Simulated scan of single mutants.
Amino acid sequence: MENVLLGALEAGGTKMVCATGFADGTVVESEQIPTTTPAETAAACAAWFQDKGIAALGIGAFGPTAVNPASPRYGQILKTPKPHWSDFDLLGALAGPLGIPCGYDTDVNVACLGEATFGCAQGLDTVLYLTIGTGVGAGVLSSGNLMHGMMHPEAGHVPMKPDPRDPIATDSSCPFHPSCLEGLISGAGIKKRWGKSGGEMADEPEAMDILAGYLGQALAIYILCYSPQKIIIGGGVADHTPIVELARPKAAEALNGYIVTPEMDDLEHYIVRNSLDGQQGIMGCLELARRALEQ
């Protein structure tokens, strides 16, 4: 298995990252392909992998998407605001032309898998990975398995207690929820309030305190519901602002001493930033490909 070349596809709403590598997480080569129409994008990705000699492909897709292999819609993008992508069979459009085993999951689940296999969560079996960028998504590894159910976690849409200082506290950027985490803390929410990116607002104390307050609320919910052994946070907004550090004491405040564990006594090493230099998604896809080949 060590010398078998594997494929990885991080399928995002704005770009597809195609890569090859090995089961130890080594990435050999990669290329970005713009996300346009479904048929055009899938064909371009399949063509990129066609002559690489990969034995299996791991796909981490933007959601919502059907991740249960028993579902008749397995591998399809579900209802999405991205034009033309709803109901598109992404897995089928790639597995068909390539004719190789394929593993399929969400982009945040594979990022979680990457950190658990190769990164700062090695040796742990219950981990939460949160990405805060254009949107907000959560991937959950529970007892060693990526969490699925009727679909997959959509923990970016948990409701938030509005901050009275917040001009969009009950009118967030989410078209479905007036005050969910994604609508309030994502890049779109930041843009709606202040007309700037998260990085451009990073030195504004009140803005960062508002965002960190929402993040702290959400982290408290995740700790109570998933009981993760580590929480890892990535994404453009998180990477370019101090909200991770600011949210740690706010999560503890929200829990109010209810959870008493060694992890809660060491929040600096419990709620952390991603550890794989932005490669956690691709590396997780390589692990997904390895598992698909073994099966």
Rank of each mutant, 00 (worst) to 15 (best):
L6Q: 00
L6Y: 07
L6R: 14
G7H: 02
A8Y: 01
A11K: 05
A11C: 15
T20Y: 06
F22R: 10
A23S: 15
G25E: 09
S30Q: 15
E31N: 14
E31T: 12
T35L: 15
T36I: 12
T37H: 05
T37P: 00
T41R: 11
T41P: 03
A43L: 05
A47G: 06
A47H: 09
Q50Y: 13
D51A: 15
D51C: 09
A55G: 13
L57Y: 06
A66Y: 10
A66S: 11
A66G: 06
V67A: 08
N68Y: 00
N68S: 06
N68I: 01
P69C: 09
A70S: 15
G75F: 03
K79C: 10
K79N: 08
T80Y: 09
P81N: 03
K82G: 04
S86G: 15
D87H: 14
D89L: 03
L90Y: 05
L91Q: 00
G96P: 04
G99S: 06
I100P: 01
P101W: 09
C102F: 00
Y104E: 10
T106G: 10
D107G: 14
V108I: 14
N109L: 06
C112K: 07
A116C: 09
A116Y: 03
T117M: 10
F118A: 13
G119L: 13
